[in-house]
Amino acid sequence: MPQKRRYTNRRPVRRRSSKKNNTTFILLAIVAVFVISFFGYRRYVQYRSETQVEMVQQERNQFVKKIAPYAVELGKEYGVLPSITIAQAILESDWGTSSLASQYNNYFGIKGDDPSNTKVLQTKEYTNGQWITINGRFRVYSDFRESMKDHTKLLVNGTTWNPQQYKQVLQSKDYIEAAVALQSDGYATDPGYTTKIIRIIQKYNLKKYDQGIK
Protein backbone atom coordinates (compact mmCIF):
# COMPACT_ATOMS: atom_id res chain seq x y z
CA MET A 1 0.00 0.00 0.00
CA PRO A 2 1.54 3.30 -1.01
CA GLN A 3 2.71 5.53 1.85
CA LYS A 4 1.70 9.11 2.14
CA ARG A 5 4.43 11.74 1.93
CA ARG A 6 4.94 13.60 5.09
CA TYR A 7 5.02 17.35 4.87
CA THR A 8 6.75 19.35 7.56
CA ASN A 9 5.88 22.86 8.61
CA ARG A 10 9.48 23.98 8.83
CA ARG A 11 10.24 27.53 7.99
CA PRO A 12 13.20 28.16 5.73
CA VAL A 13 16.38 29.18 7.57
CA ARG A 14 17.28 32.78 6.97
CA ARG A 15 20.93 33.51 6.50
CA ARG A 16 22.29 36.62 8.22
CA SER A 17 23.42 39.29 5.88
CA SER A 18 27.19 39.50 5.58
CA LYS A 19 26.81 43.14 4.59
CA LYS A 20 25.81 44.10 8.17
CA ASN A 21 28.79 42.23 9.61
CA ASN A 22 31.16 43.97 7.23
CA THR A 23 29.77 47.39 8.15
CA THR A 24 30.23 46.69 11.87
CA PHE A 25 33.77 45.50 11.30
CA ILE A 26 34.62 48.62 9.31
CA LEU A 27 33.18 50.90 12.00
CA LEU A 28 35.14 49.09 14.71
CA ALA A 29 38.28 49.36 12.61
CA ILE A 30 37.75 53.08 12.12
CA VAL A 31 37.23 53.58 15.85
CA ALA A 32 40.37 51.57 16.62
CA VAL A 33 42.43 53.56 14.16
CA PHE A 34 41.09 56.81 15.61
CA VAL A 35 41.86 55.75 19.18
CA ILE A 36 45.36 54.62 18.28
CA SER A 37 46.01 57.77 16.26
CA PHE A 38 44.65 60.04 19.00
CA PHE A 39 46.74 58.57 21.79
CA GLY A 40 49.71 58.26 19.48
CA TYR A 41 49.44 61.94 18.59
CA ARG A 42 49.08 62.91 22.23
CA ARG A 43 52.20 60.93 23.03
CA TYR A 44 54.01 62.57 20.13
CA VAL A 45 53.00 66.05 21.32
CA GLN A 46 54.08 65.19 24.86
CA TYR A 47 57.39 63.80 23.64
CA ARG A 48 58.01 66.85 21.47
CA SER A 49 57.18 69.19 24.35
CA GLU A 50 59.48 67.30 26.72
CA THR A 51 62.25 67.37 24.13
CA GLN A 52 61.89 71.12 23.62
CA VAL A 53 61.97 71.74 27.38
CA GLU A 54 65.07 69.57 27.69
CA MET A 55 66.79 71.43 24.85
CA VAL A 56 66.00 74.81 26.42
CA GLN A 57 67.33 73.61 29.76
CA GLN A 58 70.53 72.37 28.14
CA GLU A 59 71.03 75.71 26.38
CA ARG A 60 70.54 77.58 29.65
CA ASN A 61 72.95 75.32 31.49
CA GLN A 62 75.51 75.93 28.75
CA PHE A 63 75.03 79.69 29.06
CA VAL A 64 75.68 79.56 32.81
CA LYS A 65 78.74 77.36 32.30
CA LYS A 66 79.99 79.81 29.69
CA ILE A 67 79.93 82.94 31.88
CA ALA A 68 80.21 81.53 35.43
CA PRO A 69 84.01 81.04 35.52
CA TYR A 70 84.68 84.65 34.52
CA ALA A 71 82.00 85.89 36.91
CA VAL A 72 83.84 84.11 39.73
CA GLU A 73 87.14 85.57 38.57
CA LEU A 74 85.69 89.08 38.58
CA GLY A 75 84.09 88.44 41.95
CA LYS A 76 87.42 87.56 43.51
CA GLU A 77 89.08 90.62 42.00
CA TYR A 78 86.39 93.25 42.58
CA GLY A 79 84.10 91.82 45.27
CA VAL A 80 80.90 91.62 43.20
CA LEU A 81 78.95 88.45 43.95
CA PRO A 82 79.12 86.09 40.93
CA SER A 83 75.50 85.03 41.44
CA ILE A 84 74.43 88.65 40.94
CA THR A 85 76.57 89.03 37.81
CA ILE A 86 75.26 85.79 36.29
CA ALA A 87 71.62 86.49 37.17
CA GLN A 88 71.81 90.01 35.73
CA ALA A 89 73.35 88.67 32.53
CA ILE A 90 70.54 86.10 32.25
CA LEU A 91 67.82 88.67 32.85
CA GLU A 92 69.29 91.52 30.80
CA SER A 93 70.28 89.40 27.78
CA ASP A 94 67.49 86.79 27.89
CA TRP A 95 70.05 84.02 28.23
CA GLY A 96 72.28 85.60 25.59
CA THR A 97 69.58 85.50 22.90
CA SER A 98 68.70 89.20 22.67
CA SER A 99 69.91 91.17 19.66
CA LEU A 100 72.15 93.28 21.88
CA ALA A 101 73.76 90.18 23.37
CA SER A 102 73.93 87.87 20.36
CA GLN A 103 75.11 90.50 17.88
CA TYR A 104 77.05 92.96 20.03
CA ASN A 105 78.12 90.90 23.10
CA ASN A 106 76.42 93.37 25.44
CA TYR A 107 74.90 91.20 28.19
CA PHE A 108 73.88 93.99 30.58
CA GLY A 109 72.32 96.71 28.47
CA ILE A 110 75.23 99.04 29.14
CA LYS A 111 74.87 102.34 27.33
CA GLY A 112 77.52 104.61 25.84
CA ASP A 113 77.99 107.94 24.08
CA ASP A 114 80.71 107.28 21.52
CA PRO A 115 79.19 106.52 18.08
CA SER A 116 82.30 104.55 17.14
CA ASN A 117 81.64 101.80 19.73
CA THR A 118 77.87 102.00 20.24
CA LYS A 119 74.71 100.97 18.45
CA VAL A 120 71.27 102.60 18.62
CA LEU A 121 68.56 100.07 19.46
CA GLN A 122 65.05 100.15 20.86
CA THR A 123 64.59 99.31 24.52
CA LYS A 124 61.86 99.43 27.13
CA GLU A 125 62.05 101.48 30.32
CA TYR A 126 59.63 101.83 33.18
CA THR A 127 58.77 105.51 33.59
CA ASN A 128 55.93 107.20 35.48
CA GLY A 129 54.23 103.91 36.24
CA GLN A 130 54.27 102.48 32.74
CA TRP A 131 56.55 100.79 30.21
CA ILE A 132 57.64 102.90 27.27
CA THR A 133 59.79 102.11 24.22
CA ILE A 134 62.73 104.40 23.57
CA ASN A 135 65.86 104.46 21.42
CA GLY A 136 69.06 103.96 23.36
CA ARG A 137 72.73 104.00 22.40
CA PHE A 138 74.34 100.80 23.67
CA ARG A 139 77.95 99.70 23.91
CA VAL A 140 79.29 97.20 21.39
CA TYR A 141 81.84 94.63 22.61
CA SER A 142 84.11 92.26 20.75
CA ASP A 143 83.74 89.61 23.45
CA PHE A 144 81.23 88.84 26.21
CA ARG A 145 84.00 89.08 28.80
CA GLU A 146 84.46 92.75 27.96
CA SER A 147 80.80 93.29 28.70
CA MET A 148 81.06 91.46 32.02
CA LYS A 149 84.10 93.44 33.10
CA ASP A 150 82.49 96.73 32.11
CA HIS A 151 79.44 95.80 34.17
CA THR A 152 81.59 94.95 37.18
CA LYS A 153 83.50 98.22 36.90
CA LEU A 154 80.21 100.11 36.72
CA LEU A 155 79.18 98.65 40.07
CA VAL A 156 82.62 99.34 41.56
CA ASN A 157 83.18 102.85 40.19
CA GLY A 158 79.59 104.03 40.11
CA THR A 159 78.34 106.61 37.63
CA THR A 160 79.92 109.88 36.50
CA TRP A 161 77.46 111.79 38.66
CA ASN A 162 77.76 109.49 41.70
CA PRO A 163 80.87 107.31 42.17
CA GLN A 164 79.28 105.76 45.31
CA GLN A 165 76.00 104.89 43.65
CA TYR A 166 76.35 101.11 43.98
CA LYS A 167 78.22 101.09 47.27
CA GLN A 168 75.48 99.09 48.97
CA VAL A 169 75.65 96.41 46.30
CA LEU A 170 79.37 95.96 46.92
CA GLN A 171 78.91 95.88 50.69
CA SER A 172 76.15 93.26 50.56
CA LYS A 173 76.99 89.97 52.25
CA ASP A 174 74.60 87.78 50.26
CA TYR A 175 72.69 87.79 46.97
CA ILE A 176 69.36 88.81 48.52
CA GLU A 177 70.85 91.89 50.11
CA ALA A 178 72.70 92.70 46.89
CA ALA A 179 69.55 92.29 44.76
CA VAL A 180 67.64 94.66 47.03
CA ALA A 181 70.53 97.14 46.85
CA LEU A 182 70.48 97.07 43.05
CA GLN A 183 66.90 98.29 43.15
CA SER A 184 67.40 100.89 45.87
CA ASP A 185 70.60 102.20 44.27
CA GLY A 186 68.74 102.83 41.03
CA TYR A 187 70.39 100.25 38.78
CA ALA A 188 67.13 99.39 36.96
CA THR A 189 63.79 101.09 36.39
CA ASP A 190 61.85 97.81 36.48
CA PRO A 191 59.94 97.71 39.82
CA GLY A 192 60.17 93.92 39.84
CA TYR A 193 63.90 93.78 39.18
CA THR A 194 64.89 92.59 42.67
CA THR A 195 62.33 89.78 42.67
CA LYS A 196 63.38 88.59 39.22
CA ILE A 197 67.07 88.49 40.16
CA ILE A 198 66.41 86.55 43.36
CA ARG A 199 64.17 84.03 41.58
CA ILE A 200 66.79 83.37 38.91
CA ILE A 201 69.52 82.83 41.50
CA GLN A 202 67.37 80.45 43.52
CA LYS A 203 65.94 78.53 40.57
CA TYR A 204 69.35 77.83 39.01
CA ASN A 205 71.28 77.54 42.27
CA LEU A 206 73.67 80.35 41.38
CA LYS A 207 74.50 80.92 45.04
CA LYS A 208 77.09 78.16 44.82
CA TYR A 209 79.35 80.46 42.78
CA ASP A 210 79.53 82.95 45.68
CA GLN A 211 81.58 80.66 47.91
CA GLY A 212 84.83 82.28 48.94
CA ILE A 213 83.95 85.73 47.55
CA LYS A 214 82.78 87.44 50.75
Rank of each mutant, 00 (worst) to 15 (best):
S83P: 10
R43A: 15
P12M: 07
E59T: 06
N9Q: 11
Q3C: 01
T133Q: 08
Q168F: 04
G129N: 07
N117R: 13
Q62D: 08
A29N: 04
Q171R: 12
G112R: 06
P191I: 10
S99T: 14
P69I: 01
G158R: 12
T127R: 14
D174Q: 01
A178C: 05
I110E: 04
A89G: 07
Y70R: 13
W131Y: 14
I67E: 02
Y107H: 14
H151T: 01
V35M: 14
R10L: 13
G75D: 10
F144M: 07
T23H: 07
G186L: 09
Q165S: 08
T24P: 00
Y70Q: 08
K149A: 06
A178H: 05
F25Q: 11
I132L: 10
S49A: 14
F38A: 14
F63A: 00
A178G: 09
N117I: 10
W95T: 03
V80C: 06
N135A: 06
E125D: 01
D150Q: 08
T189Q: 09
A181L: 10
L81P: 13
S116Y: 06
P82V: 00
G112H: 07
K76Y: 11
T51Y: 08
V156L: 10
T189I: 05
S116W: 01
V72A: 05
Y204L: 08
Y209H: 07
L121T: 03
R14L: 14
T159R: 09
V56Q: 00
A179Q: 04
R16V: 15
